[in-house]
C-alpha cells in the first residue's frame, strides 16, 4: 500500500533523487558513538535542531491563546497557564526550550571550535552557524517581553537603553525597535511579537537550510 503510493508519486515527481540526497549517504566511523563513546559530542548539533523543532511547534500552539497586546498579553498567558489543560507544560516547553537550545548551540559551537572544524573548506558554514547563534539570542531577547510581566518590561527597558547607547545610530535603532521614541508599551510589544514570530524565524529557517545543505555538500570534518 505504502509502496504503491510511493511509486505513484515517484512516477510523477521523481522523488527518489531527493530522498537519496537526504537519507542515502555514509556516516564515518569517528562520529559514531557506537564505535567511540566520545563521539557523543557530535550529537549537540542534532539536538539543537530537535529543540528548535520543539520551539517552533510549541510556539505555534502558544499563539492559539496568546495575544500581543499590553492589556491582555499577561492575562492570556496567565489564562493559558492556569486554565487550559497542559498549558503549563506547553509554555514550559517553550520557556525551557529557549534555554536548552542556547546550551546545545553553545556546546555545538565549542565542539566545532575545539576540533578546528571551521577551517578550510568550512569557513562559510561556520559563519552561517554563528549567525544562527545570533538569531537564537535575538529570539530569546524578543521572546521574554511577550508575557508582559515585570521581568519582561524591565529587562526590555534595559535592552532598549543599551541600544540607545550605540553611537550615531543609537536613537534611531531604539525607536525602530521600540516603535516610539520614549514609551515602552503597546507598539513595543506589537513589534517584538512580529520580530519574534515572523522575522527572526524566517531568517532562522533560511540560515538553517543553508547550514544543512553545506553540511551535506562538504560532509562531516574528518577525525583529528
Amino acid at each position: 500500500m505504502l509502496q504503491k503510493m510511493y511509486d505513484w508519486i515517484d512516477e510523477r515527481v521523481d522523488i527518489t533523487p531527493l530522498w537519496r540526497d537526504i537519507a542515502d549517504h555514509e556516516v564515518p566511523e569517528h562520529v559514531n558513538p557506537a564505535h567511540h563513546f566520545s563521539a557523543f559530542v557530535y550529537c549537540f548539533g542534532g539536538l539543537t535542531f530537535f529543540v528548535t523543532v520543539i520551539q517552533v511547534l510549541s510556539g505555534m500552539f502558544l499563539t492559539m491563546y496568546y495575544v500581543p497586546d499590553i492589556e491582555n498579553a499577561w492575562r492570556s498567558v496567565y489564562y493559558l497557564q492556569t486554565e487550559v489543560a497542559h498549558g503549563q507544560i506547553v509554555r514550559g516547553m517553550h520557556h525551557w526550550g529557549a534555554s536548552v537550545v542556547i546550551v546545545m548551540l553553545f556546546l555545538h559551537t565549542l565542539r566545532v571550535f575545539f576540533q578546528g572544524a571551521y577551517k578550510k573548506p568550512r569557513e562559510l558554514n561556520w559563519m552561517v552557524g554563528v549567525l544562527i547563534f545570533f538569531v537564537m539570542l535575538a529570539l530569546g531577547l524578543t521572546g521574554y517581553l511577550l508575557p508582559w510581566d515585570n521581568k519582561a518590561y524591565f529587562a526590555t527597558v534595559v535592552t532598549l537603553q543599551i541600544a540607545e547607547g550605540v553611537p550615531f545610530i543609537g536613537e534611531m535603532a531604539k525607536t525602530l525597535l521600540n516603535g516610539d521614541p520614549s514609551i515602552v508599551g503597546a507598539q513595543t510589544l506589537a513589534r517584538f511579537f512580529a520580530i519574534h514570530v515572523f522575522f527572526l524565524p524566517a531568517a532562522l529557517f533560511v540560515l538553517m537550510g543553508i547550514h544543512f545543505i553545506m553540511i551535506r555538500k562538504q560532509g562531516i570534518s574528518g577525525p583529528l
Binding site: 499590553i70 499577561w74 497557564q81 514550559g92 520557556h95 508575557p147 510581566d149 515585570n150 521581568k151
Partner: peptide
C-alpha cells in the same frame, strides 16, 4: 524538566 519546573510568570508589568 517542564513538569517539575513550571515556566515562571511574574506580576503584570
Amino acid at each position: 524538566l517542564t513538569v517539575a519546573h513550571p515556566a515562571p510568570l511574574e506580576k503584570l508589568a
